[in-house]
Design a protein around this nucleic acid. Sequence first.
DNA 1: GTCCCGGTAG
DNA 2: CTACCGGGAC
Length: 284
Amino acid sequence: MSSRGKIQRGRGNAVRIQEVRAVVWRYYRAKGRKLPWRVTHNPYRIFVSEIMLQQTQVERVLKKYPQFLRAFPSWESLARAPLAKVLAVWQGMGYNRRALALRASARRVLDEYGGKLPRDYDALRSLPGVGPATAGALSAFIFQLPVPFLETNIRRALLYFFFRRTRNKVGERELLECAAAVLDRKNPREWHYALMDYGAMLRKETPSLNRKSEYYRRQAPFRGSLRELRGKIIARVLRGAASAAQLQKETGRTREDVARALVALLREGLITKKGGYYFPPEGN
DNA sequence: GTCCCGGTAG
DNA sequence: CTACCGGGAC
């Protein structure tokens, strides 16, 4: 913590932390969101939701989540599913590599951990598609462990509570220390739900709060990007095999762009190629 | 049309 | 640090 940090030990700060907790809990009791992945304790279901929620708004996940769980209700069913099927169900979520990572994680949970998600943070962190935010969320939501973590809503809430008058950018370390300080160790699961809901509320009330975070990055435009093209190619190939020429014509993009996208998608295993035609990934 | 929102991996 | 998706707000 920096010298002017807001959460150094001391009587005043202890009071401040109690106030923050009280505000957050009060808001949660009144306006907390009842989300499908919050009413379950099934590790698989919570794991799926956390992968889906990466870089993806709650409203979109709400739509896809039940469909995905119907198609793949367990670690086993997901692990055995053909990649093409998983990608097909995933369509609309964006960032298709998450679907690969999700199935790969299911396989590792079965093969390495006998179908039981490990409690250990580093073991979670080593699963494909699981970074610090997701590992922390899984620790809290599945295992009720007091692991502080940062994601966008938590970041926003902490900036609001502890750095509202600060002019400078706030670093991740500082924010993580705040997260650890306010964490209610009696109930980490509900505490993080509450803090995230508070942050989500702030987004509507005070836009752009997160720009005070060092973590904040402005995004490259989506229109005309390779990302957009990749998504289109995957969606197209799932409907039926296509040649590069077809893909170029149908997407209206340059041959170079199409070639670049195809090479990358092949390398990542999101498509396959046979006799000049591109297909969804092969079975098993 | 332009901008905004959101974690992980290489 | 950069690449990865898509929908919704303005």
